[in-house]
Structures are given as structure tokens and as C-alpha cells.
Design a binder for these strands. Structure first.
Lengths: 229, 229
DNA sequence: GAGATACTTCGATTAGCGTCGAAGTATGAA
DNA sequence: TTCATACTTCGACGCTAATCGAAGTATCTC
């Protein structure tokens, strides 16, 4: 029974944490629910078996998200019923405001700007995304050559895909990885649009004044997305 | 937590039995869930405390119904989620086809025709119903005097209301009780519109050919409601 | 009035499941 | 390769809650 899955307090906490639509790791969900990792693992496999959540493996992390908006809808309905009886529930905000704007993820751009770039490229039909695989369109090849000074021929690699969707740990949405993601980050650096923070352990990426303007020209929406924190 | 209430199999069976919108007694719900009366009583009080169901006391019976369509909506949503995982649920049909059309409930008319009559009287504004209390309108007083040969002055009683909504055990909707309900049934009998079944233990009410026609003329809809069984 | 029915409360039993520590597997970092 | 991190599996413990029999209360029937 599905309702029994939602009935347990620990699982309910996990599910409400996922109600934002963003994906969360198993450890984070464990912390959200106030339980240890083994317990969380057990709960997560049950929720997955019940079809409420689905995992996405990312290195040694396992990101979980709700399987669809219908699940969120039912959970919302249950919360509405609970509200009539006087119960309530609170959600804690995110953390780490510094790194959220722009940072290095391995060798490519992550954070708000990374997510925004992938969204924009998808909208401009520079890439074609089907499920998990992403590939550059012919229009996209021309774009990276002209605007970013990247030779598409240099992107091929025997063991690494050109394009790959990578889950962003601050936004919990995808940004662009793969050899193209790395090449774009390199281009940003060589063109002096951006630079990594000088301190050795920091992953923050600083955009220059003109770099941010050019980035906006290529991948900008209305600009709201960038300045939202 | 509300979901925990729905999570228990016994309670889930009860709730799905109530999904038809009709009210069921505690014993019936116990049988639906396959549990004994004490267990059912415990579950029902929990569901009531959670605001999912509400009781209506009727003599020594307690009829339970869902508190609202929103509850049914959420339950339906949960069932939809469960369906994706391969689970399913069946509902059994009603029983006792003989008594459903017209029968005596204490001293007044019940069954399909009883429900239909109350509905029609409400629609014709012969009665005014606010929550649990029902009263005859001036238009209704004239109606019962002229059409049913009932003197409205004789209906007053020190300990019994003139009009009362009574839950119908076959239709699980209200029909008219109270002194007016009794007087109307008496009128039907004296006017030879209907008569109780001769066998002593039977509660069936037989309408005559002309009686059913007159009843239809006063309280008829399209006639579909009567012949639906 | 006495008896029957519908339901509730009480108390004791039991089973299921959430919980965690410890050990095992996989992936990334050095 | 070696170490660290993220997660899973295993085994054992403990607690909640579902369950039912027996007794109690309310209501209808005769």
C-alpha cells in the first residue's frame, strides 16, 4: 500500500524535503529525517519500490527525486487534509550562499550560471537532449566554434562523452559536463571572462564585469535567474 | 499524520468502502475490513479524530461517511499511485434487491421511493432543510393538506419532531421521518395507494397501480430513479 | 419490564517494522 | 596502490500499534 509508505514519519520527512522538485542525496535525506544512514537506505529502497521516488546515480552519490508531479500532487493533498486537523510542517532553507552562483564542478561550470547555461543551450537548440544522452546540434557546433572559440573536432574522447548532464549540488538541477563542459570552462578562463578563486581549496568561480555581460548575451534570460541570490 | 491513518490495511478497506459516498454502519465497515467489532471501533474513532470520516448516530447504529469530496479525491489519488505499482482493489455490489424499492422504516416510507420523495419535496420547496433540521414551508403545509389530506395542526408532538432526515439503509441517503413522515405513510395506506406486505415480519411496501401513478405525479422525476433496480 | 442488537471500553497478547552498530561494496582522491 | 567517502546489507533490539475476548453502555423489540 502506498499510503503506508507515506505514513511513516521518517519517510514523510524525506518526501516533503523532495517536494521542492529538486533531487537530494541519500545522506541529506537521512539528515532531513533525523535518522542514520542505514535506516535511510532502507526507507529509500522502499519508497523506490513503491514508485514514489527514483534514483540517479552520480559518482558515489545517489540523488533521489519524486517520480513525477502526480506524486507531489497527492502529497500536497495529504498535507491539505492534515492541515484541517491542525498539523503543520516547516521547511528549512538552503545553505552555502557563496558557492551557489558559480563554481567549478571537477572541470566544468556549476551553480546558478551552470544550470542557466544548460537551460539556455537547450532552449536555443544548441544541444539535443533525449533522456540521459545529450549531443551537440550542427547549429550548436557552429555556435561553440564562433562564439566560444572551441574546435568541435577536439572534443571527441575515447572514454568520456562530449556532453553529459551533471546534477548540480546547489541547484539540484542539471548543468553541462563532459568534454564540452570542460572546454567551455577553459574558454571562459582563457578569454578572461572568469577565473577560479585564488585560494587553493576554493571552488568559487569569479566572473569579470565584461565576462558576465558576454555570458548574459549568450545565455541570458531576463537576468532574474542570476541575481536571485 | 493523516497518511498513517490511510496506511493501515484495515482502515484503508473501510475508507475505500466509503468511497461510494454512501454511509455505512460500524458493523458493516468491520465486515468490509475483515476485523472484529472492537478493532473496527478503535479504527473508526481514529479516523474520526483525523477528520477523515464523520459519524451520524441513528438509533443503535452509527453511520459513517467521508467528511468531504476532498478526502475522496486524495484517496483516489493514492489509489492512482498504487495502480502504477501493480496493486488493485475491488468493490462488492449491494444486496437485498427486494426491499430496496419501498419499505417501512419504523412507521414511515423508506427505500428508493422514500429517498425520491424527500429529494422531490426539497426540490419543490415544500420543506426547508438546514443542516440536520427540516421544517415544512407554508407552501408545504398547503401541499400536504390538499394533496395528502393531512391536517398540519395534527403533526405537532411534544417529544418528536415533525420532520427529520433519516438515513436509508439501502440507499444510504436520507428519507423523511418524523410525525410528517409517519402521517404521509398513513395517508398512503388509507388512500389505498400502498399497503404493507401481509406477511408479519416483512417490511416491504407494495404500491398499487394507481397509487404509484399518483406518487409519480406528486414526487416523480423522470421515473428513472424508480426503475433503476 | 426482559431480552436482543449495536457499539464501545478495557486489558493482554503479539507481530511487524523502525532503528542503529558493524561490516561490506563502490567510487573518488592522492 | 592506499585512504576516504557514500551508500548498502546484515543482525539484533525495542517499541508501537493492531488485534481480539470479555465486560460495559445504549437503544430497539416484544
Amino acid at each position: 500500500m502506498v499510503a503506508a509508505l507515506v505514513g511513516d514519519p521518517a519517510r514523510a520527512n524525506m518526501l516533503t524535503a523532495l517536494m521542492t522538485g529538486r533531487a537530494l542525496t541519500a545522506s541529506e535525506l537521512a539528515q532531513e529525517a533525523g535518522i542514520t544512514a542505514p535506516t535511510a537506505s532502507s526507507h529509500l529502497s522502499k519508497l523506490e519500490a513503491g514508485g514514489l521516488i527514483e534514483p540517479e546515480k552520480q559518482g558515489r552519490h545517489r540523488y533521489y527525486r519524486l517520480t513525477g508531479p502526480d506524486v507531489a500532487g497527492v502529497l500536497e493533498g495529504l498535507a491539505g487534509l492534515a492541515a484541517r486537523a491542525g498539523h503543520l510542517r516547516v521547511r528549512t532553507g538552503p545553505k552555502e550562499p557563496a558557492l551557489r552562483h558559480a563554481r567549478i564542478c571537477y572541470d566544468h561550470l556549476a551553480g546558478d550560471l551552470g544550470v542557466q547555461m544548460l537551460d539556455s543551450m537547450r532552449a536555443q537548440k544548441l544541444i539535443r537532449q533525449t533522456k540521459q544522452t545529450i549531443e551537440l546540434t550542427t547549429q550548436g557546433s557552429r555556435f561553440v566554434a564562433e562564439e566560444l572559440r572551441i574546435d568541435p573536432a577536439t572534443l571527441a574522447h575515447p572514454r568520456r562523452p562530449v556532453c553529459k548532464a551533471c546534477l548540480d549540488w546547489s541547484e539540484r538541477r542539471h548543468h553541462l559536463a563532459g568534454t564540452l563542459g570542460a572546454a567551455i570552462m577553459t574558454s571562459f578562463t582563457t578569454m578572461k571572462w572568469a577565473a577560479r578563486d585564488p585560494s587553493p581549496s576554493s571552488r568559487v568561480v569569479h566572473f569579470t564585469r565584461s565576462g558576465e555581460r558576454r555570458f548574459e548575451a549568450l545565455f541570458g534570460t531576463t537576468g532574474d535567474a542570476i541575481r536571485k541570490t
